[in-house]
Amino acid sequence: MNYDTAAGSQVVRLPLDLIRPGKAQMRRIFNPDALDDLAESIRSAGLIQPVVVRGIGDGLYELLAGERRWRAAQRAGLHDIPAIVRDDVDDQEAVVLGLIENLQRESLTPMETAHGLKELSARLELTHAAAADRIGKSRVYVTNFLRLLNLCEAVQERVNAGELSMGHARALATLPARDQSHWAAETARHQWSVRTLEARLRQRTAQPLHEGNDAEWKRLGRRLTELLGNKVELRGDARGRGDMTIKFHTFEELDGLLERLGYDNDDF
């Protein structure tokens, strides 16, 4: 069988007990039932797609991509598996290769994806747009997942468990941490749609504004800041006139803000 390999790589069969999980593996949750299904497939047809590894000395290898296949092969009772050996990558590239492989396959949970994108962006000092290019996704895709990192741990667990959708998670991420667990629990208990949750949150914050009440204007400004991800300042008078200022620091940040407001660069 032919495998596509990069320069400096080769395909070999390696004993399973010589392969170790990758140090920067972002995937933490492996569904046992899904692993059993894959193991049964491997028993019947063998492992068709090789894992990707690199040598780490003493005859051992580190997984760069394919931990799920490696685990399923163990369950299937295999002694060795096909592997692409990539000894041409350094520590930094090894981490990036594993991250990109998982992100492109969309094999991570929502929170694993969020943390993976954060890790990728930090290691390579990438903007949201550049990170999106590296994994073949849109900038909005990257921004939406990174917003999930604003969720408290309890809500993150609900998202990973599938109790809340990405739409629910994005709505909850705009709330202060102290309020997120309550609204997440209410959403799961009543099985609210995303639109219902958003409507409930609007009702929660909808209070009349009055002239001279700076606290109310500041409160609304904070809520808009949380919603848009950029600092918002509001001022108004009794006649309903006023101004709203949205601050940004780079053109890229402005582009992201315009996307969230529904504009596209092609409109200009």
Results as ranks from 00 to 15, higher is better:
V159N: 07
Y61V: 03
L164G: 02
E163T: 01
D58C: 01
N2L: 11
L16Q: 10
M244V: 15
L228G: 06
A34G: 00
D255N: 09
E93M: 09
L103Q: 10
V12Q: 13
T174H: 06
L227V: 11
L126A: 04
I81T: 07
R123V: 12
E163G: 00
A34K: 15
R68V: 10
W183Q: 04
P208F: 07
G229M: 05
A154W: 00
T245V: 11
T250A: 10
L64N: 06
P82D: 07
S165H: 02
M166W: 00
R139H: 03
G240H: 09
L16V: 11
L35T: 00
L254Q: 07
A73C: 07
F268Y: 14
V159P: 04
R28G: 00
V51L: 08
D243W: 11
H128W: 08
R68A: 12
G46M: 12
E253M: 05
S121W: 05
I81R: 11
E125F: 05
T196M: 09
D80T: 11
A171T: 09
N144K: 11
E157H: 12
M244W: 03
L99P: 08
G77L: 09
G167V: 05
Q207D: 08
A161V: 01
D87G: 13
E252K: 04
G240Q: 09
V51P: 00
A45K: 12
K118L: 09
W192T: 01
G256E: 15
L97F: 15
D237E: 06
G167I: 04
Q156E: 14
A6N: 04
D133V: 10
G242T: 06
H168Y: 05
Q207W: 04
A72H: 01
E186M: 13
E62H: 10
I29F: 14
D37K: 15
Q74P: 00
D87Y: 03
D91E: 15
R86Q: 14
A73M: 07
D4E: 13
E106H: 11
L47T: 01
F268I: 10
L149S: 12
I246N: 03
R139W: 00
G236K: 09
A215R: 13
S181L: 08
V53K: 10
C152P: 06
I19Q: 04
A169D: 01
T245R: 15
D266F: 06
E112K: 09
D4A: 12
E211V: 02
A122K: 13
L228T: 14
A238F: 06
G221R: 08
S181V: 07
K118H: 13
T205Q: 14
A132Q: 08
F251Y: 02
F30A: 01
R219G: 09
T250M: 04
D88L: 08
D88K: 05
R239K: 11
I29T: 14
G116V: 03
F268D: 10
W70R: 07
R158K: 15
L201P: 01
L227D: 04
N230Y: 03
R28Y: 00
A72F: 01
T250L: 06
R139V: 12
G55N: 15
L63C: 03
R27S: 03
M26K: 11
V51G: 03
W183R: 05
D237W: 02
R147W: 12
A129H: 13
L257E: 04
R147M: 09
A129D: 13
N31R: 13
G236Y: 06
D133I: 05
N144S: 15
A206N: 12
A122E: 13
